[in-house]
C-alpha cells in the first residue's frame, strides 16, 4: 500500500464542510421537531383516535417502516411532481425526514401511551376533562418520558440517515464531501473527515436530547414509579 494521506485540502474547503454541516443540522432540527409532532399525532390516532382513522395511520406507518428512506426520498422528489406537487431539494429532504421519523415515532410513542395505567385516563375523565384534554395534559408527557431513550435513538438514526438526501442534490454534509472529493480526488480523506463530523454530530445530538429530556420531564423516574 503506497498511499500518502493528504488532508491539506481542508484548508481550502472547510467552508464547504461548514455549510454542509449547517444544512444537516437544519434538516435534523426541522425533521426532529416536526417528525416527533407527527409521531405524537399518529400515536394518538392509533391508540386513542376514531376508528376510521386507525387503518389509515397504520397503512402509513407500515408503508414507511418497510421501505428504504432513499426510495421515499426519490418518490417525493422525482415522483410527486407527476401529481403536480413540486418542491426544491431541501423541501423534499425535509418532508421525507418528517414523514420517516413520524412513522417510527408513532410506533415508539404508541408503546408509551399503551403503558399508561388505566387509572390516569379515568382520573382525567372523572375531573371532567375531555378525551383530548386528558391525552394532552395527563397522558402525553409521562408517555414520552417512558420512551424517551428509544425516541432519542430513533432521532439519531434519522439524522444519520439524512446522508442520503445528497442523492437528490440537497447540499448537506455528504453532498459537501462528494463535492470536495470530486475537486480534490481525495475521496478517502474527504469521507473520513466527514464520517468523523457525523460521529461528533451524533454524540452532540444525543447529549442535546438528554438535555431536552431533563427539561420537559421534571421528574425523572416519576412516570415509572407512579401507579
Amino acid at each position: 500500500m503506497h498511499y500518502t494521506f493528504d488532508f491539506g485540502w481542508l484548508l481550502e474547503y472547510w467552508p464547504v464542510l461548514l455549510k454542509g454541516i449547517g444544512i444537516t443540522v437544519e434538516l435534523t432540527l426541522v425533521g426532529g421537531v416536526l417528525g416527533v409532532s407527527l409521531g405524537v399525532a399518529c400515536a394518538w390516532a392509533r391508540a386513542l383516535g376514531p376508528g376510521w382513522l386507525r387503518p389509515i395511520v397504520t397503512a402509513y406507518v407500515e408503508m414507511i417502516r418497510n421501505t428504504p428512506f432513499l426510495i421515499q426520498l426519490f418518490f417525493i422528489f422525482f415522483g410527486l411532481p407527476a401529481l403536480g406537487i413540486r418542491m426544491n431539494e431541501l423541501e423534499a429532504a425535509n418532508l421525507a425526514m418528517v414523514i420517516n421519523l413520524g412513522a417510527y415515532g408513532c410506533e415508539i410513542i404508541r408503546a408509551g401511551i399503551q403503558a399508561t395505567p388505566k387509572g390516569q385516563f379515568e382520573a382525567g375523565a372523572s375531573l371532567g376533562m375531555s378525551r383530548i384534554q386528558t391525552f394532552w395534559h395527563v397522558i402525553l408527557i409521562p408517555a414520552l418520558q417512558r420512551i424517551w431513550p428509544a425516541l432519542s435513538s430513533q432521532i439519531v438514526i434519522v439524522m444519520l440517515g439524512s446522508a442520503a438526501v445528497s442523492q437528490i442534490a440537497a447540499e448537506d454534509l455528504t453532498f459537501a464531501a462528494n463535492f470536495i472529493q470530486s475537486r480534490t480526488f481525495r475521496a478517502f480523506e474527504a469521507y473520513f473527515v466527514t464520517t468523523l463530523i457525523y460521529l461528533a454530530l451524533a454524540v452532540l445530538l444525543r447529549q442535546l436530547l438528554r438535555g431536552v429530556g431533563w427539561t420537559i420531564f421534571p421528574r425523572r423516574g416519576a412516570a415509572s414509579r407512579a401507579r
Binding site: 390516569q120 409521562p142 421528574r219 401507579r227
Partner: peptide
C-alpha cells in the same frame, strides 16, 4: 361528552390507587 362533563362537574370521584398525575 357534554352531559358527562356536566355530570362530572357535579360529582367527583376518588380512586383506590389515587391516580395522581405523576408529572
Amino acid at each position: 361528552e357534554i352531559h358527562l362533563k356536566a355530570l362530572r362537574l357535579k360529582v367527583g370521584m376518588i380512586f383506590q390507587q389515587f391516580n395522581l398525575f405523576p408529572h
